[in-house]
């Protein structure tokens, strides 16, 4: 149900853009106004969220230690899995962000006859997640060729690498295949794995369908509809130079792509997609496990009622004396 309704929502969005995109006076709304609004929401929303997070204090240092602590000199410390200093933390975070280190640990618990519990390796989620995110990043960078003139070298190099196999006309991008495949895998997993299906919300399907729609509309434009790239570039550069135009040659298929992107941007700050910012701030990962070496201060620390020694001694005075233990009074 949730999957179907979120699919329906994405399809409706696309259809709306497709048909409205043929109505001349609305083309400016779809091609200029909505994208600007979406970008504004994205920037404001993401900054707001990140600021709120950053301003909220970290009262305690609570890293999850996944390796040996640094203690005695002759015991090898797990500098990466249980970092005790900044370089270790930076390396640990880099591994998390770039390679999804923790997800790589994934196992699958299975209860067999006996009873015997087996923990098998389960790396598909990691692989699918990595394929999706890296493809997304590469595609994002490749898109810069529409916005910057002359096209930066890095973008051109990436473009060439991505079409390394030199098949098809226009050349097939590897990431176009991998992102669609990865998204389909993630979707299928959400639908097929009973546990994951059970925990999934409307928003979880929506994010996947939305990005899938974005990717598929892009693929359609490039390989099948063969849209007018020069016109698209005019529109894109117009947007970033604040002199927007919607050239006649821009088809409503492109406007579908643009509206799905705008939806993604506007939706981003209010959704779980904020994990992009959150991962950097996670206190179980981005703090060094040097708790006993360096004092961590809680900014909102406050005095609490305690039971001081004097009161304790007064209460048990006679018993302490009878037991022959030393007394203050």
């Amino acid at each position: 149900m949730k999957a179907l309704s979120s699919l329906a929502l994405v399809v409706a969005l696309a259809a709306l853009a497709f048909f409205l995109g043929r109505v001349e006076p609305l083309r400016v709304v779809l091609g200029v106004i909505i994208p600007y609004v979406a970008i504004a929401i994205f920037l404001a929303g993401v900054s707001y969220k990140v600021i709120v997070w950053s301003l909220s204090p970290v009262p305690f240092r609570i890293p999850t230690s996944c390796g040996q602590q640094k203690s005695l000199s002759w015991i090898k410390a797990g500098w990466l899995e249980n970092p005790h200093s900044t370089p270790g933390v930076v390396a640990r975070m880099a591994l998390e962000v770039l390679l999804f280190r923790s997800l790589f640990r994934n196992t699958k618990a299975e209860l067999r006859e006996g009873p015997r519990l087996i923990y098998g390796e389960r790396r598909f989620l990691w692989l699918g997640a990595l394929a999706f995110h890296w493809s997304f990043l590469v595609i994002f960078v490749r898109h810069l060729r529409f916005f910057i003139e002359p096209v930066p070298r890095l973008v051109m190099v990436l473009d060439r690498l991505d079409s390394f196999f030199q098949v098809g006309i226009p050349l097939l991008y590897i990431t176009d295949v991998t992102i669609v495949a990865a998204l389909l895998y993630l979707l299928l997993r959400r639908l097929r794995d009973p546990q994951v299906r059970y925990i999934s919300l409307f928003a979880d399907y929506f994010a996947l369908f939305l990005i899938l729609g974005l990717a598929l509309s892009g693929v359609w434009m490039r390989y099948f509809a063969r849209i007018d790239v020069v016109a698209v570039k005019q529109l894109a550069i117009g947007l970033v130079t604040f002199s927007p135009i919607v050239p006649r040659e821009v088809t409503s298929l492109f406007l579908v792509h643009l509206i799905l992107l705008s939806t993604l941007l506007a939706y981003f700050p209010f959704s779980k997609l904020m994990h992009m910012g959150g991962i950097f701030l996670s206190p179980t990962r981005n703090l060094a496990n040097n708790n006993r070496r360096k004092r961590h201060v809680n900014p909102w620390d406050y005095p609490v009622p305690v039971h001081p020694y004097q009161e304790w001694e007064a209460e048990f005075h006679d018993k302490i004396a009878a037991a022959g233990l030393p007394l203050e009074k």
């Binding site: 994951v196 959150g278 991962i279």
Partner: peptide, 24 residues
């Protein structure tokens, strides 16, 4: 507590429900 603990606020916001933690 949302104001006092970054951990709490963040953990409320960023879970993607990937299910990697489920059978752990």
């Amino acid at each position: 507590r949302l104001r006092k603990f970054r951990s709490f606020r963040l953990f409320m916001d960023i879970c993607v429900r990937c299910g990697a933690c489920a059978d752990k």
